[in-house]
Amino acid sequence: MNAPEIQIKNVSMVYPVNNGQDIVALTDVNLDIQEGEFISLLGPSGCGKTTLLRIIADLNQPTAGSVAIRGQSPRDIRMQRKYGIVFQNPVLYDWRTVRRNICMPMEIMGIPKKERTARINRVLELVGLQDFGDKYPFELSGGMQQRVGIARALALDPEFLFMDEPFSALDEFTREKLNEDLLSIWSKAKKTVIFVTHNIPESVFLSDRVVVLSPHPGRISAIVDINLPRPRENSIRETPEFYEYVTKIRRSFEGV
């Protein structure tokens, strides 16, 4: 086995609070992630899953422990613009059309105009929004807006894709549709994906491994390998194996 792509060692995160009762968001988290792996960080709110993702993305600094990504610090990876990120809400800039929203990080990265246009066309097609490129965000539905957010991350052609509950604000139908779309996109590129969610079936459907976190203090309580065959389609949700994984993970919470 190769050296892990991402190595999380003894990471802790404490938010100081004035009254002395500091909030321990994460305590002593250790996790190795392999290249090309689809990992879900699953848990109830307050378990520190988003915090862990933000530490890996260098948007927060851990109070203890370290993260190494291909032997480099998260900051190095961020400064080299090696990852794309998708947030809980679409984070679109109201004054830019869909195309120009997708374009924005590429502008900052200094990708040539011609290349940008080609990539925008490609990702628009990938997320099924080829007819909406010139619309403003307020003209799109919530699901469409979230697809733009994903397209924007994919357009960077990043080596890592970090997704922080990207579908949590969507209805179940849209969510399952986007889950399937995401897998088909991922299967073509095979990026390393870290996917934060509180939805058990979603994590089972998407992941190679589900990392279960539990709160107070936030820590890893289980890691479940999902050995479902790929490529997966939504019909797999109806299989007994799928159901077994979901049940197993749910029980792991009840034990807490």
Binding site: L59, R78, I85
Partner: peptide, 9 residues
């Protein structure tokens, strides 16, 4: 929005 900006340095 600011996080997004930071994510691309």
């Amino acid at each position: 929005s600011i996080d997004l900006m930071h994510s691309v340095a």
